[in-house]
Design a protein around this nucleic acid. Structure first.
Length: 223
DNA sequence: CGCGTCACGGTTGAT
DNA sequence: CGATCAACCGTGACG
């Protein structure tokens, strides 16, 4: 796996790992600052992230409403959509909202609300409605747990931005940062049914950044 | 000077 | 099991 993959340092002084997405906290921070009206160039300088990356993340967020990186790896020779599976379901959106940190479990919209809005918006949504209850139990038992991101970041995050990343409340092993985990980027239902591992709900205490009603608005414009 | 875009070198993960 | 390969990653540079 990671052969002692310490982060490299870009020209702005920021730590990054080549080939790997930025930590989720930094992504969230980028979007946060952008919504506060900070200009992308200032965000780039402040977070020590290349402006190309800031632009990319912001553009993605504005388009999809998601902060997360795309699904890395895997052969997508035939996408599930072409095999007849619809792309996404209401409960999947709900899970996604939780996973993104857009909503917490107290203000996340109900599945029926999302479903109604979706149907209102799309119209001809075929709903095979395979609402299996086996998803949670079996998947959690059978599959391995969330692969924690194997980021072996040293503690050498930027010393100026040290206040955002380090939460003493979050259980954090010495070598691993547990704030970033494997986000299942949830392509299809079968995918979600296969992967059901995220959000151990141990670190959701960090809702001090009150994220993005905008993300929710993307999915549920009428709520 | 800001920012959109892309080649580059890299990693990942399903097939 | 290992190899393949298409997806994505952020940086850096160009325009």
């Amino acid at each position: 796996m990671q052969k002692q993959n310490y982060g490299e340092v870009n020209q702005l002084g920021g730590v990054f790992v080549n080939g790997r997405p930025l930590p989720n906290a930094i992504r969230l921070r980028i979007v946060e600052l952008a919504q506060l009206g900070i200009r992308p160039c200032d965000i780039s300088r402040q977070l020590r992230v290349s402006h190309g990356c800031v632009s990319k993340i912001l553009a993605r967020y504005n388009e999809t409403g998601s902060i997360l990186p795309g699904a890395i790896g895997g052969s997508k020779r035939e996408s599930d959509a072409e095999r007849g599976d619809p792309g996404i379901f209401a409960w999947e959106i709900r899970d996604r909202l939780l996973a993104d940190g857009v909503c917490d479990k107290y203000n996340v919209p109900s599945v029926s609300s999302i479903s109604r809005i979706l149907r209102n918006k799309i119209g001809n949504l075929s709903q095979p409605n395979q609402y299996e209850s086996s998803k949670q139990g079996s998947a959690q038992a059978g599959l391995s747990y969330n692969h924690i991101y194997p980021y072996s970041y040293p503690n050498a995050m930027s010393p100026t931005s040290a206040k955002m990343g380090n939460h003493p409340g979050v259980p954090m092993t010495a070598g691993h940062m547990s704030i970033s985990r494997a986000w299942p980027s949830a392509h299809t239902v079968s995918n979600i049914l296969g992967i059901r591992a995220f959000m151990d709900s141990s670190g959701e205490e960090n809702n001090h950044f009150m994220p993005c009603e905008k993300g929710l608005c993307v999915f549920t414009p009428q709520l």
